[in-house]
Design a protein around this nucleic acid. Structure first.
Lengths: 337, 337
DNA sequence: TGCTCGTCTGCAAACGTGTGCAGCGCGGGC
DNA sequence: GCCCGCGCTGCACACGTTTGCAGACGAGCA
C-alpha cells in the first residue's frame, strides 16, 4: 500500500489535484467549504505531501546540511543541538555529516549535500575552507562557518571572541595575584589558538608582566596532549603558578599531570580552560573556564542562514563574546609574588 | 546560474537525456565510447543528479531518519557517530532530529520524516514507542529501536545486555571482598534500570549475600540526582562500602557527594558506573564502569536497517554484551568483612 | 537484394507537486 | 437582454530523473 498522493485525495474529494494543492497550502482562491472538506479528507487519509516532488518545482528543500568533524565531540554536539532546535522552529530539517577531518570524506559530504540540494550549509570547526568555496560559487548555496579556522571573506561566519576570552582568562589569573602565568596551546597552530594566545599576551602586557617563551608549550587539544605539556612546565627551574589552557580537554590533561606529581589544583597551581564543556563542572576540582555559548552559537548560525536564504543581507562576521566562569580550579598563589 | 541538469549534458553531448541517464548509471546498453564521453562532460560541468527527482521515480531517498532525545547527550552522540559512519559506507545520508523528550516535538519529527520519505528510521532511548508504530504500519518504513525502553514485538531493536552488565559490575565488587554493596538506580523506572537492578540482585544471590532494601536508592540519571542519592546512603547507620550506579552520570554525582563528606574513592567507598562515557576516563579517580560499545551499536542498528531495506529478514532483537572496564574507582574494602 | 539479428539510441510516459491561464457560472448594471 | 466582472475550479505544463518500448543502423546470411 503506497502512500496517498495528492491525486488520491482529489479523486475522493471529486476535485482536481490543483484544487487540492491550493486548498492545502491555504490559497485564497479556494472557497472555505472546499478547503475545509479537502483538509478533512487529507487528515483522515494521513496524507503527507512529498517534499521531493515539491522541491522539484520550488527548487527548495527546506533542508540544511551540517558538517562537523565528529558529532562525538561535545562541542560539536552542543552546537548541533542549537542548530537543530532553531531549524525546527523554522520548519527546516538538518542533514548531519561527520567529516572525521578526512579530506576525502569531506568531499563525499559535499557531494551528498549537492545531490540532495540542501538549501544551505553550516560547517563547524573545519580546517578546510576551499571545498566549500567551490560549492558556494557553483550552486549559490549560502554557507555559514562556525568557529572555522580560515574564515574566507566570501563566506559568512559565526565565531567566539577568542582574543577577549583569552584576555579575560589571563586577567583573572593575574588579578588573583599570579605573576608566573603559562599558556598551553594547540600544536596545530590554528587560528583560535593564535587568537587566544594573543589575548594571553595582551593581558600580560596590561599587567606589565614579562612574556617568557619557556612558559608557552603545546598540546593537541585533548587530555593526552595536555598532560605532557604540563609536565614540561612543571620541570622548569621556576615553574609557573598558573596555567591558561587552550581548551577544557587540554586543561583536564594538565590537571591530571599536576596531581600525578603530587601537587594540587588550585593550591599549588591554578588552571583555567576554555569552552565550558559539560565535564568542566564535574572535574575535580570543577574547572574555571571561558564559556562558549555553544547552543546559542548554533542557533545564531542557523538564523544567519535563514536570513541569507530570504535574500536579506546579513552581518558577514558575527563575533560572540565568551564568559568567564569561575569555579574551584583557581585561587591566589601560595607564595606571595 | 542554475545547476546543470541531465538535459543540459544531453544537449552538449548531442544525445538524448535518456542516454545520459543510462551512461551515468553504467548501463550496459550504452557503448563504451558514448559512456566515457558523457562521463567526461558530466565531470567537467560539475553535474550532480538531483536525488529529489530520482527518488520521485525510484521511491527511495537513500536517507534515513535518526531521532534522539538530545544530541548533546554523549551517549546519543556516540551512537549517532556510529550510525552516520555506517550510513556513509552504504551511501546513505542521515537526517537528525532531537525530540527533547517532548511528545509534541516527537510528532513533528515523525511528520517531517514522513514528508521527506526517509527509507528507514532509527530511534534511540525513547520512552514512547507508539507513535512509531503508526508510522511503521502506515508507510511500511522499517524502524530500528536502540536501547528503547519499550521494545515492541513488531519492531526490531538493538539493546545492551543490561542484566549481564549489572551482574558483572556487582560481581566485580563482590569479588574484591565487598559485602555491603548498594545500588543507585533511575527513579523513572525505565526498563534498563529494572534490568541492571536485576543483574545486581542476581550477583548478590550468587554470593549468598542478603538483599537489603535500604541499600537501594534512586537518582535521575544525572550527576545532580546521583549526589543526593549517595548522601542518603552515607547517612545510613551502616553505610555500604561499594556502590553500583545506574550510569556514569549518576556515578559522577555519587563521587562528588562522597568527597564532599571528606571520604575518598575508592579507599572508603568503591564506585562502579555504566556506559563508559568519555568522561569516565578523566574523572578523578577514573571510573570503573561497564562499557557500552555505543559506536558499534549505532553501526549495528544501521546495518540491521539496511538488511530490512533489502527485504531480508533480520534478527528482530539483537542483544549486545557490555564489557567491564576496571579503573581506579574500585578496590578491596578497608575493613575486612 | 532482402531478411534477420544484435547493438545502440531516442521517444514518451511516469513519479507528485505547484502555478499561469483559461473557462465556467452567476449576479448586477446598463 | 447583453455584457462585464467576480469568485471559483480545472487544464496543462513544468520540475529532473528512470525505464519500457520502439526504431535506426550496420553486419551477416541466404
Amino acid at each position: 500500500m503506497k502512500r496517498a498522493s495528492i491525486k488520491d485525495i482529489a479523486r475522493i474529494a471529486r476535485v482536481s489535484h490543483s484544487t487540492v494543492s491550493r486548498a492545502l497550502r491555504g490559497s485564497p482562491l479556494i472557497s472555505e467549504e472546499t478547503t475545509a472538506r479537502i483538509r478533512k479528507i487529507a487528515e483522515e487519509t494521513g496524507y503527507r505531501p512529498s517534499f521531493a516532488a515539491r522541491s522539484l518545482v520550488t527548487s527548495r528543500t527546506a533542508t540544511i546540511g551540517v558538517v562537523v568533524t565528529s558529532i562525538a565531540d561535545p562541542f560539536a554536539a552542543e552546537v548541533v543541538l542549537g542548530i537543530e532546535d532553531a531549524a525546527n522552529d523554522h520548519d527546516y530539517s538538518v542533514l548531519l555529516a561527520n567529516s572525521n577531518a578526512q579530506p576525502e570524506r569531506e568531499m563525499r559530504v559535499v557531494r551528498a549535500f549537492e545531490e540532495r540540494r540542501v538549501d544551505g550549509i553550516i560547517v563547524t570547526s573545519s580546517r578546510v575552507g576551499a571545498i566549500y568555496g567551490d560549492m558556494l560559487s557553483q550552486a549559490r548555496v549560502p554557507i555559514v562557518l562556525l568557529n572555522n579556522q580560515h574564515p574566507s571573506e566570501f563566506m559568512h561566519s559565526v565565531m567566539i571572541d577568542n582574543v577577549t576570552g583569552g584576555l579575560d582568562a589571563t586577567r583573572h589569573l593575574v588579578g588573583l595575584g599570579h605573576r608566573r602565568v603559562a599558556y598551553i596551546g594547540d600544536r596545530f597552530g590554528c587560528q583560535s589558538d593564535t587568537e587566544r594566545f594573543g589575548g594571553y599576551r595582551s593581558a600580560l602586557d596590561l599587567a606589565y608582566l614579562p612574556f617568557l617563551p619557556e612558559y608557552v608549550t603545546h598540546g593537541d587539544g585533548k587530555p593526552d596532549g595536555g598532560a605532557p605539556a604540563m609536565e614540561s612546565l612543571l620541570s622548569l627551574p621556576v615553574p609557573p603558578t598558573a596555567v591558561f589552557c587552550y581548551n577544557d580537554m587540554t586543561a583536564l590533561g594538565a590537571m591530571s599531570a599536576i596531581s600525578s606529581r603530587g601537587l594540587r589544583v588550585p593550591d599549588d597551581i591554578s588552571v583555567v580552560g576554555f569552552d565550558d564543556l559539560f565535564v568542566a563542572q564535574y572535574s575535580s576540582p570543577p574547572l574555571t573556564t571561558v564559556r562558549q555559548p555553544m547552543r546559542d552559537m548554533g542557533r545564531i548560525a542557523l538564523e544567519t542562514l535563514i536570513h541569507l536564504l530570504g535574500g536579506a543581507a546579513s552581518e558577514p562576521n558575527v563575533k560572540i563574546p565568551g564568559q568567564l566562569i569561575v569555579r574551584q580550579s583557581t585561587c591566589a598563589p601560595k607564595e606571595p609574588a
